[in-house]
Design a protein around this nucleic acid. Structure first.
Lengths: 199, 199, 199, 199
DNA sequence: TATGAATGAGTCTTCATTCAT
DNA sequence: CATGAATGAAGACTCATTCAT
């Protein structure tokens, strides 16, 4: 009677609901009851698919981090200019992924960073994914432009990858606090920041 | 016999304890009982000096933001190269201010950003201080180098101020997640980022 | 499976327990824990059915006031002599209504009067019900005896209604303080008071 | 060093303050801190003169009851018509006694009645004073008019004393809930009630 | 599988009372 | 005698989790 695909679907419903609630009210502000209501199921049922609330938080964190990692060198972005991509990303907060969950919700990013300092499991996960992302960014930077990369010299890769991360993460913070930032200004800023990255 | 200096000292004890607890467990993970224990006083006593837990959170937030704002154009940094300053800051997480409270605890920065999305009072405070900081950074950028500024042309000031903020805030995030980042790498990265800022 | 009748039954259990506790220890002397224990449920469960303790108090107040208002011109009393009715009422403190809750608990009446001076919601409710009761008493006084009223001349109605209320409320106070009052004495007293009311 | 008159004065200050606070917020709504503030002294000092808060409540109750008992056959009222006296009393809620404490604050009367059902000491005190008052009213009723009494026949005294009490206590309740009652109406009502009392 | 009522430990907060000064 | 800071035991209320149905 165990239907793995149904179980999978239920887990997804829960995670979707949890993500929505967490983005709105934070990990600690969102109650299981609210998550259950959002998922249109009973609170008790959630515990058939997740051991505890912190398991849900950890799953959300893992999913978000995976999505970020996937996004970094996603083919559809490789032909875009880097600045353009970051620019577009900034103003499309509410864009939804194909699985209907928000992609890198900036509020969640802050929550995750804060939670990482507390839940050691999340801390480890965050650091592990940080490394993955780092590796992918570096790959992307050093891959020749003919293969969708930037073709940067090996010696410059680590520093430039770090530069990229600083700006990307700084953008996430700005996105949370100043989502209506003047687009023209941001565009100019990003162009100036990215030029030396590529040059 | 109402001793204002004692009251002040008690408030400080409470804020110090709260900051420690908040940095360790987050605003919502730290209980008043734990804060009281850390401050070595009874839970009830805290309420002689603060109306509620959220008043304490708001006080912490204001203090942190004030410290950041003060630090931005502190004279002792104006003669330092910008990259050097940011570099030093990164590796001195546990440096304590003269009043013995941690200066810009990176974990707290994440908490504040997360909390701002929930507590509207903190949201407003954060936005107000953002504007203050923005103004100070711009002042600093446009002030002639003879007066300790960077002497940047007016037209470039807004974009460069934004660049600066992105990198600063990106550094805060990195500081939380990767405090043992290779110093040589960071140094190289910052130099490359800051050069175009000044040029 | 949301069972409205169960919810109704639970609300009743809570109100019954609350009324018992309030009558014994007063609105402020009765703790939610004690009410929960009396209702044989956990404290948390109460909050599924009532928003707060003061909502419970208000519900009790409303119920008591409704019962009083209902009782005033209840058909079964209209054919009784007025004095007889008041007399009977005095000595049946512990009589329970068909819904098993005490009817016009005299201790509660004092609590309500005291609380009305503090909780404005209760103050308003009390004044509103006062008016309702006033209107019903007046109706009863002026309705012809053939219809179960007293057939009192319109000009005399307001003063006689007030007389009635003074005596009724005075009886409530006596009931609290001197429940074992000599029946024969009370009977004689009421007869003398009511005669001029009717005459 | 023990100055009995000073101690007496301090006790009075405390009781005055307590009465004010209790009348405004009830026995349980008034905190010791508020009473201390009203008495313009420190909370700690109160405990030099009273063992506990409930001792203060009991003292207040005793004082109120004594004042009521005293007032009943106070010479200055004996030459007044009874109805007139009750009428005057109704509309002079804020009149202050020579010792500056409110006389028979109606709100307090409700508090006391409610508290009597809870604190057995107060219950006993209330019943004891009830008896005293009863005796005094009866004395007054049976004393010849030449001596300031009403000269009522012995056989009628108990019932008429009870009638008097019912109306007096009913008036207290009305005073709490409907202090702006139409004076002409009340006058008419009282006249009709008191006539048979005297006749 | 699903419900949602029920639990109870834990949270913030208040306040009568004590005690060092 | 007097202060008021300090205590700590409740109190109202919340919410993750369980379990009978």
């Amino acid at each position: 009677m165990a239907d793995p695909s149904r179980a999978q679907a239920q887990r997804k419903r829960i995670l979707d609901a949890a993500q929505t609630c967490f983005a709105e009210r934070g990990f600690h502000g969102a109650s299981m009851a609210k998550i259950a209501e959002t998922a249109q199921m009973s609170p008790g049922l959630i515990y058939r698919y997740f051991e505890s609330k912190s398991q849900i938080i950890r799953s959300i964190v893992e999913l978000q981090l995976e999505q970020i990692a996937d996004e970094i060198n996603h083919p559809k972005h490789s032909h875009q200019s880097l600045a353009e991509h970051m620019f577009d990303d900034f103003y499309t907060r509410r864009r939804r992924h194909e699985d209907d969950r928000l992609w890198m919700d900036p509020g969640l990013i802050m929550e995750i960073s804060a939670e990482a300092a507390r839940d050691p499991v999340i801390g480890v996960a965050l650091r592990r994914f940080d490394e993955t992302v780092q590796a992918r960014i570096e790959d992307w930077l050093r891959k020749p432009q003919t293969q969708g990369g930037l073709g940067i010299a090996e010696a410059d890769v680590p520093a430039k990858a770090l530069m990229l991360r600083l700006v990307i993460e700084g953008l996430k913070v700005r996105q949370t606090r100043q989502p209506d930032l003047d687009p023209a200004l941001l565009r100019r800023c990003l162009d100036q920041l990215v030029q030396p990255l590529l040059g």
